[in-house]
Write a protein that binds this DNA or RNA. Sequence first.
DNA 1: GCTAACTACCTATCGACATAGTTAGTTGCG
DNA 2: CGCAACTAACTATGTCGATAGGTAGTTAGC
Lengths: 193, 193
Amino acid sequence: MSLPNALLALLVVEPMTGYDLHKKFESSVGHVWHAPDSQIYPALKRMEANGLLEGEDIPWGPRGTKRQYHVTAAGREAFTSWMNTPLEYARTRDPAHLKAAYLEWAEPEAAREQLRAHIDHHAGLLEQWRETVKEIEDGTSTMLNRRLAHTSAADQEKTRAYKLFTYEGLMSQAEAEIAWAKRGLTLIDRLND
Amino acid sequence: MSLPNALLALLVVEPMTGYDLHKKFESSVGHVWHAPDSQIYPALKRMEANGLLEGEDIPWGPRGTKRQYHVTAAGREAFTSWMNTPLEYARTRDPAHLKAAYLEWAEPEAAREQLRAHIDHHAGLLEQWRETVKEIEDGTSTMLNRRLAHTSAADQEKTRAYKLFTYEGLMSQAEAEIAWAKRGLTLIDRLND
DNA sequence: GCTAACTACCTATCGACATAGTTAGTTGCG
DNA sequence: CGCAACTAACTATGTCGATAGGTAGTTAGC
C-alpha cells in the first residue's frame, strides 16, 4: 500500500524513470521507506495499468531509450487522498525486542554484543539524520533544493518544516533505542557477577 | 526468520498446540511479534519437517484430537544458536514517517487528525505496557508465572528482568512517538495561521 | 437439548519483499 | 580505443504476511 504512494510522492514533483526512482530510494525516501529496484519496476507497470501514471519512451544517447513516468490526474488524486486518510497501524514485528524478551537464553557475552550492535546501528542512523537535518537547515541539501525548485513560494516553508520534523522524529527514535540498549548493557552486568 | 524462533521461544518452555500458540500470539509474544493462525499452522508443519519440532496427536474430548508440539534437541539448538547470533537490521519501512515527510500535501485538519491518531495509538500501547510492567513487578502476570514455573530458581530473576527490560523499551518507543507527534501538532498550528 | 461461544485446524489467494541474477546501452578516462 | 563504471530495465524464485474464508468437535448456560 505504501510503495505506490512513496513513488507518487516523488513523481508529483517531477517526472522520472524507474532508475531515477530507484536511486532516490537509496537516499531520500529510502530513509523512511526502502524498496529495491526489483519492486519498483513492476510497481510502476501496475500503477500505469491502474491509470495512476503514464509513461513515455524518451531517447537516451544515440540508440537507447528510457521510460519516463509522470503522474496523471487520477494519480495526483489518489496521492492526496492517501495523504488525507488516516493510517491503519500494523501490529508490531520487532525482532530486536523479540530477542530482548528471551535474552536469558543467550550467552551473556553474546547478549552484550547484540546490544552493542543495536547501539552501533542506531548511532549510525542518528549520525546520518543529524547530517541531513544540518543540510536542510543550511540549505545545502540537493534533495530538498530540487524539490523546492518545483514548489510555490508559499509552500516552501511547509515543505522544509515537515522534512525537518520527519528527521527529528527519526532522531528521537534512534536516541530512544540507544538509551534502551545502554540500560540493557548495565542490566546484563548486574545479572552476571 | 523470526516466526519459527518466536514459536520456539514459547515451545522450549512447554509443549503446546497450534491453537495455544495462536492465543499466545494474541497476548504475550504478539506484543513484539504478531502472527495470525494462518501463518502459525503451516510454520509448525514446516518446522516439524525440518526436525525442529515433533508433534503428537492427543485426545481432546470424547472424539476429538489435537496436535501438540514439543521441541527436539535440534530445535533447542537452533533456538539458542539464533539467540546467540547478531541480528541483521532490515532497512526502514515506516508509513507514519513516510507520510510525515510529505505532510504539506495533506489538509491541515487531516494532518492534525493523523497526528492525534498517532498519539492515541501509542498512548494505548503505552497504557498496555505500563499494566504489563506492573503485573510483572507485582508477580500477578499469569503469562510470566507460567513461564517461571518451568524455570530454574537461578534463572528466574533473569527471566523477569529481561521481560521488564523489553517492556520498558516498548514504553520508551511509545513515549518518543507521542512526544514527536505533539511537536507536530504545534508545528501545524504555527504553519497555518 | 439447543445454541452460542470457544477450541482446533486448515486452505486459498494476492501482493510484499528479499535475493540473485540477466541484458544492453552510455559515458568518462587514461 | 578499450575498459570500467554507470545508467536502464527486467526476470525468477521463494518466503512472508494480510485477509478471508471453511470445517468440525467441545463446553457451558439457559
